[in-house]
Simulated scan of single mutants.
Amino acid sequence: MLEAFYATERGSLEDATINGGFDLHPELVWIDLIAPSQEEQQWVIDAYEQNLPTLKSLEDISSSARFYRDDDGILHISTYFLTKNKNYQVDNESDEHDHMLATVQTVAFILNKQRLLTLRGEKLVSFRAFRARARRNDYEVDYKDPVWILLGLFEAKLDELADILEDIHKDLEKYSTEVLNNHHREQVLDLDDMVTRLAQQEDMLGKAQLCLIDLRRILSFLSRPRALGSHIYDGEIREMSEDVRSLVEHTAFLFQKVRFLLDTTSGFINSEQSDTIRRFSILPSLLTAPMLVTSLYGMNTTVLPFAHGDFSFTAVSIIIVASFILPTAYFRWKKWI
C-alpha cells in the first residue's frame, strides 16, 4: 500500500490520490509505504530517484547504523514502534505473534529537504493518530517542512507509548487487588494464570523500554548541531527528550511493581504447595492411633478390654473413632491443619 500527502496553504496535510507512479508529484511532502509491492517501490524510485530498503533489511540493521546522514545530505532513520496486538489470543496455534500482547515494528524514515519517505510492514496506531492531528492542524504547524512531519510522527509514537504504559499501570493495579485480597485469592484466583499475565506485562514493558531508549538515542542525534539544518526544531526536540526521560523513569517503577507482584504470587504458590504437603504428611499421623488400636484388637487375645462380649464390636469401633477424632481436634486447635 502506498499513501501520499501534500501540504495545504494553511500547512495541514491532505491525502493525495495515487493510481500510479505518474501521480507522485514533486509537491508531495510525505510518501508512506505500508508493506509495499515491488511495483509501488519502483514508482517511488523512478519518481524521486531514491533507493528504498527492503522490509527484511530493516530487521537486520545494527544499532550503530540506525540513524545517519549520507553523502547527499539525506537523513536515514530506522526506529522501533510498539503496537498492541488486537488479535491477541491465549491459545492459538496459527500464529506465534497472536500469543503476544504487543509487537515491535521497525519503521524506516528517509528525509530530504523536499519530503519524507516512510516504510513499514503494517499499519500503526501512532501513524493514524498523527494523520488525524495533521489534518486538523490545531497548533498551526507548517507541514510544508517535512522535518515537522518527522517530529510529529515521533511525538505520536511517544503518545502511544504513554498510553500503553498507562494501560499497564491500570492492569497492575487490578492485579494487585486480586493477589492481595485473601478471599479472592483463595476462592477465585488462579495463581498460575496470574503469573502468566504478569510475565506478559513484563514482556510488554521490556518492549516499551526498548522503544523509549531507541527514541532517546534518535532525539540525542537530532539535537546535534546541523543535524536538521536549523535551530527552530530544538525546542520541540528538548520537550520530547524530557517526556522520554519521564516515561523511562515510569517504566522502571512499573518493572518494580511487576516484580513485586511476581514475587508475591510465587510466594503464595509456594505457601499453597507447602500446605498441601503438610496436610499429606499429617494424615499418616492421624491414622496412626486408629491403626494401632485395630492391630491390637486383631490379635485374637483375651487380655484386652472389650475383646469379648455382645457389645465388643461397638466398643472397639468407638475407641477407633475416638483415637482418630481426638488427634484431629488437637491438630485443629493448634492450627496445624
Rank of each mutant, 00 (worst) to 15 (best):
L222T: 09
F331H: 11
E96A: 13
A16H: 05
L180T: 02
A7Y: 02
T302N: 09
T79N: 00
D138E: 01
S57D: 05
T177K: 08
L326R: 11
H25N: 13
K157Y: 02
D72I: 04
L292V: 15
L24W: 09
I34A: 09
R120S: 03
F255C: 08
I277N: 14
K144L: 13
D95I: 01
L296W: 05
K335D: 11
R226N: 14
H183R: 09
E239Y: 06
S266I: 11
D95R: 02
G121C: 06
S295A: 15
K257L: 10
M194V: 06
K86D: 13
H184D: 08
G298N: 05
D60Q: 06
S266Y: 14
F260Y: 10
E272L: 02
V321C: 01
L161M: 10
D167M: 02
L261N: 09
S57Y: 03
D263F: 06
D214C: 15
D98Y: 13
Y139H: 00
H99I: 03
L283Y: 06
H184F: 12
V303K: 08
L262R: 14
A227S: 04
E166N: 12
L165V: 05
N92Y: 04
D70V: 06
S37W: 06
L82D: 00
N51S: 03
P36N: 12
R259Q: 10
L228F: 00
Q187E: 12
S281H: 12
E140W: 13
P305S: 15
D159I: 12
H184S: 13
S63Q: 11
L124E: 08
I45T: 12
G229P: 09
Q42V: 07
L180H: 01
I149W: 01
E59D: 06
T302P: 07
V29H: 01
D214L: 14
E14R: 13
R185G: 01
E14A: 15
F67I: 01
R185V: 00
A132P: 05
S317G: 06
R120L: 00
L215S: 10
E272K: 02
H250E: 07
T79L: 01
R10I: 10
G267Y: 13
L165E: 05
D214Y: 15
I45Y: 09
I18L: 00
I318N: 02
D275I: 11
L150F: 12
L24F: 08
L165H: 07
I110E: 02
H250A: 07
H97P: 04
L161Y: 07
N19Q: 02
S241H: 06
L172T: 05
I232A: 05
L111Q: 04
G229L: 11
T118G: 03
H97M: 08
W333P: 07
D71Q: 13
T17Y: 04
Y233W: 01
Q200I: 05
Q187Y: 10
L111W: 00
L180P: 00
D190K: 03
D71G: 15
P225V: 09
D91A: 10
S274Y: 12
F81A: 01
L124W: 11
H25T: 14
I77H: 03
D263Q: 07
I337Y: 07
L247M: 03
T264S: 09
L119G: 14
N51C: 00
P26S: 15
T328D: 05
F260R: 08
K144G: 14
Y6E: 15
